[in-house]
Amino acid sequence: MTATTGAEVRSSRSAGVAVVTGAGRGIGAATARRLSAAGLSVAVVDRTELDTAETVAAVTAAGGTAVGVGCDVALADEVDAAVRRVNEVLGPVDVLVNCAGVTRDRLLLTMGDDDWDTVMDVNFGGTVHWCRAVAGQMKQGGGGRIVNFSSVAADGNAGQANYAAAKAAVSGFTRTLAAELGPYGVTVNAVAPGFVATPMVDELAERLGADREAFLAEAATRSALGRVGAAEEIGEVVAFLAGSASGYVTGQTLVVDGGRP
């Protein structure tokens, strides 16, 4: 199927509608592809529609249905508009995956207000905005799946006070929302990835002036499995939490980090 955007999108085998934010690349893109393979029509959300093109193309090339939606998740108005567009093009949202995230690593004493606000507003605020925007239609539809993205950094990490606080807040919010939406058949869980080879990690290595392969090799020593994760492995866990097999799992944060050595 050669679906791209807007009204051109058609679905021949949809098992529901999934929204994946931050799906232009990395874990979000892998998740979008995986959910499409499970039969869902996928709204690929990223900062601009252009950013979604590669993932939309990959999904449709594999026979799936996808629509690209540009949206700054930190802005509630843009999220509301994005939900309206998804509803118009694909229908009510059955699965929401909040994968959009940014880092602005600094030590506390040198961290600027903007470093704090950006990380908080995208990682935590974006998650809240999207959950709030789709919770009503999930309740009305008799159920749904929400999968948020926390991080192993939520345990605390030097140089990431902003990111750790935001991701921990996502885990706490997940527990809260699970309690509120449980009676309506909506499960709310979070995934906390460890070190995963993604473009965001590549950018981090570059910022630190580190060789990418050496950077990944060092990270691998901090995993019991002795390797870093792949985006597709996170997508598999999300697919489980988004599927019917996880119907009695809610309010949890599932750590996917290859284990502690």
Partner: peptide, 22 residues
């Protein structure tokens, strides 16, 4: 309990991170 979870988790993570730095 429900309403405190996000703040509580954020406070904890911030505390742990900053403790390492300071």
């Amino acid at each position: 309990w429900r309403e405190a979870q996000a703040v509580l988790a954020g406070v904890t993570a911030f505390t742990r991170s900053v403790a390492l730095e300071l």
